[in-house]
């Protein structure tokens, strides 16, 4: 409280004197950063931007393809969706038991934010439960189911970061393509280019993202045009388009 005039003046002088001598102490007066205990309190008060489950999957992802493991890992289905420009790319490798059509092994890789990584990791755990999920049930997985598994996601991340189910369906289509059961392929909402083998625009895009540069290389990955050769000029056009789009 204000007491007397003379005291006030003294105080003002005192504080301005402080401001003059302070440069000397510039480096010494480093503000104290939070101690462990204080940090814990802050953590408890302002929880992480994602749920604990997202955090756990992000920091300790399960079933991902390790460096060098691709060469050893035995798989009979691969799916990849997304684009580097959009910020999310997911790739899934599956080993499907041909007798039971159950997913016995899964590996994945994801380029993207924490929730993209966590959602693929959570999906991989869902697939491995109860000795592996059947392809039929796996096809029914929706983003909502994955988000539920994760204990929720921030609204803004809802649409963009959960692509795992799409990558999974791509992989399932790939499985049927590899064993020649084309009638079981269910193309995603993307334009079908090869009407016989049900190969879509998206498949070509993914092939280009995966390094295919020519028609032959794209065919090696997708067999596009082998079912319906009339689509080849369109395929070549698409390859050019995606190579430009991704600067590949």
């Amino acid at each position: 409280m204000i007491k007397t005039k003379s005291k006030n003046k003294k105080n003002i002088k005192k504080s301005s004197k402080n401001s003059l001598s302070m440069t000397k102490n510039l480096k010494k007066n480093k503000p104290k950063l939070l101690s462990r205990q204080e940090a814990d309190i802050v953590n408890a008060l302002s929880s992480w931007i994602y749920s604990d489950k997202v955090r756990e999957h992000f920091l300790h992802p399960k079933n991902f393809m390790k460096f060098g493991e691709e060469k050893k890992f035995k798989y009979n289905a691969v799916g990849m969706v997304g684009s580097p420009a959009c910020g999310d790319v997911m790739k899934i490798w599956l080993w499907v038991d041909p007798q039971t059509e159950k997913i016995k092994k899964v590996r994945w890789r994801t380029f993207g934010c924490a929730s993209a990584i966590a959602s693929t990791s959570a999906l991989s755990e869902m697939l491995m439960r109860n000795e592996g999920m059947s392809l039929k049930k796996a096809r029914e997985i929706t983003p909502d189911k994955i988000i539920k598994e994760l204990g929720g996601l921030p609204d803004i991340k809802y649409h963009c970061s959960v692509l795992g189910d799409k990558a999974l369906r791509e992989a399932i289509n790939d499985y049927y393509r590899r064993i020649g059961q084309y009638e079981k392929i269910k193309p995603e909402g993307s334009r079908v280019i090869d009407k016989v083998l049900k190969i879509t625009e998206k498949d070509i895009e993914n092939a280009v993202i995966n390094g295919a540069k020519t028609l032959e290389e794209v065919q090696k990955k997708t067999k596009v045009g082998l079912g319906d050769p009339r689509c080849i000029p369109l395929v070549e056009e698409l390859i050019r388009f995606y190579r430009e789009k991704y600067n590949l």
Binding site: S16, T23, N25, L26, P31
Partner: peptide
């Protein structure tokens, strides 16, 4: 940036005294 100690010192009197 964090507010430097010197700055805080000059500010403090203005919250309750002045």
């Amino acid at each position: 940036t964090p507010v430097s100690k010197e700055v805080i010192k000059t500010m403090l009197p203005y919250f309750d005294q002045f």
